[in-house]
Design a protein around this nucleic acid. Sequence first.
RNA 1: GACUUGGUAGCUCAGCUGGUAGAGCAACUGACUCUUAAUCAGUGGGUCGAGGGUUCGAACCCCUCCCAGGUCACCA
Length: 573
Amino acid sequence: MSIALSEQEIIRRESLQQLRALGINPYPAEEYKVTAFAQDITDNFATFPNTYKNVTIAGRIMTRRIMGSASFAEIQDSTGRMQIYLKRDDICPGEDKTLYNTVFKKLLDIGDYVGIKGYVFLTQTGEISVHVQELTILSKSLKPLPVVKRDEEGNIHDGFTDPEMRYRQRYVDLTVNPEFKQIFIKRSKVISAMRNYFNNQGWMEVETPILQPVHGGAAARPFGTHHNTLDMPLFLRIANELYLKRLIVAGFDGVYEFGKMFRNEGMDRTHNPEFTAMEIYVAYKDYIWMMAMVEECLEEVARAVHGIAAVQVGANEINFAGPYTRLTMYESILKYTGIDVSAMDEAGLRETCADLKIEVDATMGKGKLIDEIFSAKVEASLIQPTYITDYPIEMTPLAKKHRTKDGLVERFELFVNGKEIANAYSELNDPIDQRERLEEQLILAGRGDDEAMAMDDDFLRALEYGMPPTSGLGIGIDRLVMLLTNQSTIQEVLFFPQMRPEKKAKVVTADDFINIGVPAEWVPVLNKMGFNTVEELKAGNPNKVFNDLGGMRKKLKLEITMPAKEVVMAWFE
RNA sequence: GACUUGGUAGCUCAGCUGGUAGAGCAACUGACUCUUAAUCAGUGGGUCGAGGGUUCGAACCCCUCCCAGGUCACCA
């Protein structure tokens, strides 16, 4: 329960009571049949004025401009805002002007949901508006919304901008900053466009376990939990790769899954503990085929979101139409540093890192050293979509060895705007090779590499039955959406980014006060007066507390019975 | 995790060298029948993130902690 309501909240609760006293239900149960939307009226009234002679719209009151017996207000529905015009004698044709004078002017507030029936017209200043003939209260709002003002140029004046509040109270954010809804609408389009593309190819959407006994398929620290009935530890998945491959073993030609992954690691503007990944596996294909598929798919996604294949991201215009540049990892390092690392051994790589002032540590093997050079010197330069191919075998235990190049695997990552967006392999389907590669990971783990991958015996058993040659792809959906919506933080593309819990107002339970004889309805008043614990109250002056209670009652216009003086005195014994 | 910036009214923010907590919007009272960042007159509203310390006196100085942003580190 809320303690210590603000002045405005108390006033709204009083308005609620007054509405009930007038016989108006502030939270009616009946369906309200909406026949029109703000956006549609705005777009089409000029062309088809006759179709808007009797409309019903519903939404929140967002602004009010009251001028005596006539008023303008703006209603916000899911599509936008619509100005409404209320005239006292139109909504109150008889003698009783309560609906206008009391209900609309006094008891309704910004944030309340109302429904209106009326006709669309053009004001003298030329704004499309609805002339209200009937007003219905649909839901009363008890907390004041921040009022964001916009002028004619669209400048925002009193913005609701604090990121902490925007993320914690996304419902307020999207109400008063509706332009942010576009990000989430585009996010939805990204996913549905990709899903449509896959379905059109005949591939099947599947669901695989989120609770896993072994957290395989990637290298990351997991979240752990416990199943009571089975009395066993379980992990939230860090990846679903090994399960999707089991389905390829099972005989499906193409399977894909959009799903949340969970990694118990740091949080920053590109990492949230839970994030959405799309993984797809297609039998009888290889990573070269996959590059062409990704080009076609992403172009379609970009067109679905923007209508064209080019997307403005920060200062760069990024073109998702293929084909994309392809560089091997060694070529890319040569291109951006002038150094050929392709023939270097571990000692040579360490020396190169030292020359380039890249920090390394003793646990890093050859593959990891090359990755460090790449991350430090190449990644940020890859603005237009670029495939980096043919990675060192050491860092990629689930990819097939390269068909011609020793020491490399058939893998590509897609980089866009300096960041990795997708990762794909010709999947390793040789069960003996796979077992050896996972055993090497165990050795790395023993050396202190906590990113090393875990052994999964059931997955190896599945491979031993036989998996067809397969290409697999993973795409980080959140980061793709960030790109396609020109956002630089992951929080902006997640409805509810992870946050630390809000500090609870040190609310001592009301019971403590009730136990010493304070009536329940007076506990919030004592809190409001600054007494948050019984001890604090007892340290106070009983006579002053009694007098102040009366003062608060008057000040807050509380309609609760004043406790007798001897009752108050008893609190202090 | 390190460094850094911030946390003051419902919202956005001022607040000087430590000396009675301010503005705009929102709210309340009143005026106003085409306004649109409506206007005009008036009024109320604060645990200055929390706790300790220094001081005659702390929003301000010191310490500890909490929350958020940024940068870096870590992390495919």
